[in-house]
Structure formats: structure tokens, C-alpha cells
Design a protein around this nucleic acid. Structure first.
Lengths: 193, 193
DNA sequence: TTTGCACCGTAAAACAATTTTAGTACAAAT
DNA sequence: ATTTGTACTAAAATTGTTTTACGGTGCAAA
């Protein structure tokens, strides 16, 4: 078995267990046992349990970014359509990213500090990419620029992140995803000329 | 000392202690001692500790509602201005409502069920009053109605409540209150004709 | 209406005993 | 280079038990 396949299999098992039982209630022994690897192998590939968890989260985030990038780079969509697809897709993916949920929850009674860099990385990625969508809208004449693009991106992210907790931790996603269309209409129109 | 003054003094001390130390770390004995009342008096006026806490929260919420009502009923403001003042004022007041913060926090590891009725009451009040502001905007021709007013109010509340946790529990209020103007511009414009 | 005090039952804090678990070391195998 | 298996340690989590603190009551007196 190649080195990549071993690492992959560890990550895959870790992903399943972490998302099912959470970080603390999943042990390295258990991961090793189910992945049919020696514990030593886990530590050959990952520096620590936190490091392994971080990689799992990183993959969740990369998956998110890749799927969103498809939207951002789709030349068939105008800026409003992109914004709309972006918002809806983002929430839908995150809604099923169980490990990300745990890091959200953890913010309130403990801190997963070792995740912080991934978060800020995602933040910057989003700021950059939403910025590009807005810029496209401005260039095409769809949107009216009355503020800094940076600021607009931050506002959009602020809204998106604000909704994460009611949606994912208080299970309001189903209830409010109905109103999502309406919200995006307003935002999109709010930006438009 | 009149009955009202006794009750008032208990409430005032309870408010201070609860907001400083939280619900669990404030004891009825302590409240009685600092208010210079007998414990029996607390139970003469309030059925239980929860009941006392609920009154404290109720007062915070009434204060919020009263101040927002001034804005809603101000005949000098048009609908966009009202919406803007409403959003900003709401966040500013809630930012310093320490006991309300605790009930927010509590949502994640315990539940203050005895507060639920107050919450839903506030929710309904807000839906009603934001609805009136939007209606005013529609009537005056400022806003364009392309959806149900009820739905629009719910969306607005969804955003406002979504921001509560990052703002008040993760202390992002200072950081983002700068962008608040921009957000409101967008929302207001998103509703407008 | 308010006080002061003794009292009860329970829930949480504190403590100690026990078990799990992250992480290491290393010899052997591929 | 990569993987295994075992044995180990120090720290953390868990469990069971005891003690304490606290919400709440009852009541006589003012």
C-alpha cells in the first residue's frame, strides 16, 4: 500500500469518527484500529491528534472552497447570479460539514486554537473571492459601487457567518433556507444600480 | 419604605449582581444581604430565583422595546431612516444588556426555559414593529413590495439575531459596528424602489 | 409587609481512586 | 523510507463518594 493510500485511509476513518463522535470522544487507538493501521503509523503521518483533526477540517474547507470556486469562476453567470449561488451553496455545504460545526460549537466553552489559521485562511479566501464577484458586478454595470469593495465583502461575510450559529447549531437551517431567496434578492438589489 | 421601593431595590441589586456574576454564581442570600432585605422579603415579592431573574430580563427587554418604539413612532423619519436607526439602536442597546447576553450564551450548554416566553414575546413585538416600518415604506412609495411583509420582517430579524452571537459573545461588536452603516445602506436600498 | 432565624432536601463542589488516552521508544519487517 | 506491534509514561478523563452550599419553607414577632 502506497504512502498516499495509507494517509488517505487514516484521514478517511478519522473524518468519519470525528464527525460522528466529536474530537474528544474519538481516540487515536480507535482510529488506528478501524483504519487497520498501527498507532505508530498515525504518528508517522501526523504530528498529533490536533494535527490530524486539523487536516480533516482543512479538507472540509478545501472542498467548500473548490465548490465555491466553480461558481466564482463560472463565466456563464452574471454577478447577481453568482452572489446568489454562492450564498446558497455555501450554506448547503456547511450545513453538512459536521466537523466544522464542532469547531463552531467549541467557541463557546473551549477553544480549538489549532484551527485558527485555517479559519483566517478561509476568511481571506472568501474576502478575496466575494470581492472578485462584486468587482465583476461593478465592471459589468450591474452593481453600483458606493463603498470600498473590501468593506462590502466583509459585510457579506459578516452576514454569512452570523447565520452559521442559528442555522447549524440551533437547527434553523431548514426553517430559514426558505427565506434565503428573499434575503439574497434584497442584498443583490441593494448592491445594484 | 413602600412596597414598590422594596421591590425596586431588590430588582436593582439583582440586576447588578446577575449581570456581573451570572445567574448561577449569584445567590439569593447575597442579593438579600446587599439589598439589605431579609431573604423572606425576596420570596414575598418573587416566587423563585428564576422568577426574579425573569423580571430582570423583562426589564432589559422593556427598555429595549421602549427605546425602539420611540424610533418606530417618530413621525419625522421616513422608512429608510427608521430602519437604519432601528438596526443601530438595537445593537447598541443589546450590546450593553449583560443579562441578555447570558441567556444567549446559555443556549449552547444549558437552557433557560423560563425565559422562552419573554423571547417569543420580543420576537413578535419586533416582527410587528419592523413590519410597520416596512409597511410605512411601501405606502410612502420608498420601498418596493415584491414579497410578503411578514417574510421581509422575518428576514430582517434573522439577520439581526444572526449577528448577536458574533457581536456580543465573540466581542466583534466594536470591529463590525463600523461596517454597520454600509450594511444598512445595502438592505435599505435592497428594499427600495 | 418585613424581619430573622432555624430548618429541609437537593444539587453542586471537592476529593480521591481508577481508567483512558495521547504521545514516545524501539526492535523488527518490508 | 514506511509500517507494524508492543510496552511504557505522564496527563487527562471518568467514576464514585463525601461534604458543602444554596434554593426554598415555616413561623413567630414586629
Amino acid at each position: 500500500m502506497s504512502i498516499d493510500r495509507t494517509k488517505e485511509s487514516i484521514l478517511s476513518v478519522a473524518d468519519k469518527l470525528f464527525s460522528r463522535f466529536g474530537f474528544h470522544k474519538t481516540s487515536m487507538d480507535e482510529i488506528a484500529k478501524i483504519a487497520r493501521k498501527a498507532k505508530g503509523s498515525l504518528y508517522y503521518h501526523f504530528a498529533s491528534k490536533e494535527d490530524l483533526f486539523r487536516e480533516v477540517i482543512a479538507r472540509e474547507m478545501n472542498n467548500l472552497k473548490n465548490q465555491l470556486a466553480v461558481i466564482v469562476n463560472n463565466t456563464d453567470l452574471n454577478a447577481s447570479e453568482k452572489l446568489k449561488s454562492y450564498f446558497i451553496k455555501r450554506m448547503a455545504i456547511l450545513n453538512s460539514a459536521a466537523n466544522y460545526h464542532e469547531t463552531l460549537k467549541a467557541d463557546f466553552f473551549e477553544r480549538f486554537n489549532f484551527i485558527d489559521d485555517l479559519r483566517t485562511e478561509l476568511d481571506e479566501w472568501e474576502k478575496e473571492n466575494l470581492g472578485r464577484v462584486i468587482l465583476q458586478g461593478v465592471n459589468s454595470g450591474e452593481f453600483l459601487l458606493n463603498t470600498d469593495i473590501d468593506v462590502l465583502s466583509e459585510i457579506a461575510i459578516m452576514i454569512l457567518k452570523g447565520l452559521e450559529i442559528p442555522f447549524f447549531l440551533q437547527d434553523k437551517y431548514e426553517k430559514f433556507s426558505l427565506h434565503f431567496e428573499g434575503l439574497i434578492k434584497i442584498l443583490s438589489k441593494g448592491l445594484s444600480k
